[in-house]
Amino acid sequence: MNHKVVINLPIEPHEVPTLRQRAGWDGRHADYPVLFERCNFWAGVREVNDELIAFGYVSGMGLQHGYMEDIIVHPHYQNEGLGQALVEKLLEEAERFGLEIVTLTYDSRHTSLYTRSGFTPCSGGVWRKKV
């Protein structure tokens, strides 16, 4: 893998929603650029043509605990180690930032990615607003 993961990579508001949609997720266009103002830090990767091909972030109070979210890799670049490189770079920044605990939720098919990066699977719960 020859792509560089960059902390707080300059990203235009439309780029993450576009990447989300390419990965088959809801674009959540209204979240950007507000997300960049509210999260602790983010990381991104660009291809040689300057297209955003990977993104993720850590949010929270920034005291002891943070929450990693939206680890997204463009479908054409999946299974090349880019997701793991993104997660590991975010964890390095979390440590530099002073976080002692980082949590995340993920689909069970991604367990090996996160355990290779140092996460310990555990039980938990998720609350969602009823729509």
Rank of each mutant, 00 (worst) to 15 (best):
residue 1 M to C: 11
residue 4 K to Q: 15
residue 4 K to V: 08
residue 5 V to K: 00
residue 5 V to Y: 05
residue 6 V to N: 00
residue 12 E to D: 14
residue 14 H to Y: 08
residue 17 P to W: 05
residue 21 Q to S: 04
residue 22 R to W: 05
residue 23 A to K: 04
residue 23 A to D: 05
residue 24 G to F: 02
residue 24 G to Q: 06
residue 24 G to T: 01
residue 26 D to K: 09
residue 27 G to C: 02
residue 27 G to R: 02
residue 28 R to Q: 12
residue 31 D to Q: 09
residue 33 P to I: 08
residue 33 P to Q: 04
residue 34 V to N: 07
residue 34 V to T: 10
residue 35 L to V: 13
residue 37 E to V: 02
residue 45 V to L: 08
residue 46 R to C: 03
residue 46 R to L: 14
residue 47 E to N: 13
residue 47 E to G: 12
residue 48 V to W: 05
residue 48 V to M: 11
residue 49 N to A: 07
residue 50 D to H: 15
residue 51 E to D: 08
residue 52 L to Y: 08
residue 54 A to G: 14
residue 54 A to M: 09
residue 58 V to T: 10
residue 62 G to E: 03
residue 64 Q to W: 13
residue 65 H to F: 08
residue 67 Y to W: 08
residue 68 M to F: 01
residue 69 E to L: 01
residue 70 D to E: 10
residue 71 I to E: 07
residue 71 I to W: 14
residue 71 I to A: 06
residue 75 P to F: 09
residue 76 H to C: 05
residue 78 Q to T: 13
residue 79 N to R: 15
residue 79 N to C: 13
residue 80 E to Q: 15
residue 80 E to T: 14
residue 81 G to L: 03
residue 84 Q to E: 15
residue 85 A to K: 12
residue 85 A to H: 07
residue 85 A to N: 13
residue 86 L to S: 03
residue 88 E to K: 15
residue 88 E to D: 09
residue 89 K to E: 07
residue 92 E to H: 10
residue 93 E to F: 10
residue 97 F to D: 10
residue 98 G to W: 11
residue 99 L to I: 15
residue 103 T to Y: 01
residue 104 L to V: 03
residue 106 Y to R: 09
residue 106 Y to N: 09
residue 109 R to I: 11
residue 110 H to L: 15
residue 115 T to W: 10
residue 121 P to H: 12
residue 121 P to Y: 06
residue 123 S to F: 06
residue 125 G to V: 06
residue 130 K to Q: 14
residue 130 K to F: 04
